[in-house]
């Protein structure tokens, strides 16, 4: 079953045509990787899935995006509810300058959960799911800014899990991290795919092969090819895909 279906999506910022006729289906509880050279539109694409582009001036789009069959750009849809269902992890870890606990509890608080026990419990669960609990359980009231980059990124994942989204968007989540932290995040992605639909943007092709089941290759704002990851890397159907994965450009 498909969690997200995108039909004929076009995106412009003022006069720049960033995404052209995007069609893609994202199955439930799997990891889908989006690869492609810098500036190919893959980040813009995932930011349309939780409507983070709305705040950027000059953003226009046509086409449809369905989440569980519902059009997410329908005027009746509240973006706040949408973003609760579609969480996001950013390229650079961006914890709030608050305590570790408050970072994870933040989403619950803005969604009106005030029961202290519930919050306490779910903070712990989320940190455990994000494989961070053992490292921070003794310093939950310390500032999150004191954590290492990799820990901060796992905290951001924990923060996202805590509001129990259906989809997690990850925009090059490891690009600012060292190899060891990257491995930890990749292990985490493996674990999370049972409960969440994950879409990860990466320009690291090895990472795509390690974590994802499906991969789409973006180039110049178009999807060149989408397939099972294994197939896409072993027997690409399009010449451009082959050129890219064999390192002939980009």
């Amino acid at each position: 079953m498909n969690r997200i279906e995108v039909e004929d999506l076009n995106v412009c910022f003022d006069d720049a045509h960033i995404l052209k006729d995007i069609n893609i289906k994202i199955p439930k509880n799997t990891v889908t990787a989006l690869i492609g050279p810098s500036g190919c539109g893959k980040s813009t694409f995932i930011r349309t899935l939780n409507r983070m582009n709305d705040v950027i001036s000059g953003f226009k789009h046509t086409g449809m995006i369905y989440l569980d069959g519902e059009d997410i750009y329908d005027p009746k849809i509240d973006v706040v509810d949408l973003r609760k269902k579609v969480g996001m992890v950013f390229q650079k870890p961006n914890p709030f300058p608050k305590s570790i606990f408050d970072n994870v509890a933040y989403g619950m608080k803005v969604h009106g959960i005030s029961d202290k026990d519930v919050i306490q419990e779910r903070v712990e669960e989320s940190l455990k799911s994000a494989a961070l609990w053992d490292e921070v359980k003794d310093k939950l009231d310390k500032s999150a800014m004191g954590l290492s980059g990799g820990q901060q990124q796992r905290l951001c994942i924990a923060r996202t899990i805590a509001i129990e989204p259906e989809v997690i968007l990850m925009d090059e989540p490891c690009s600012a991290l060292d190899p060891i932290s990257t491995t930890k995040i990749e292990d985490l992605i493996h674990k999370l795919k049972d409960d969440f639909t994950i879409i990860i943007v990466t320009h690291n092709m090895q990472q795509a092969t390690r974590v994802s089941k499906y991969t789409s290759f973006f180039l110049h704002g178009e999807i060149v090819e989408s397939n099972l990851t294994e197939r896409l890397f072993l027997e690409p159907e399009d010449k451009r895909t082959e050129d890219y994965i064999t390192g002939r450009f980009g």
Binding site: R83, K84, F96, P97, V110, H111
Partner: peptide
């Protein structure tokens, strides 16, 4: 205040005012 704080908060489903009030102003 870095834009990334605002994006982080909005992506968690906070409204603009909640983001300002709970993240931007404290920072």
């Amino acid at each position: 205040v870095p834009r990334s704080y605002r994006e982080g908060s909005l992506a968690l489903g906070a409204t603009k005012w909640e983001t300002i009030y709970r993240v931007v102003l404290p920072a």
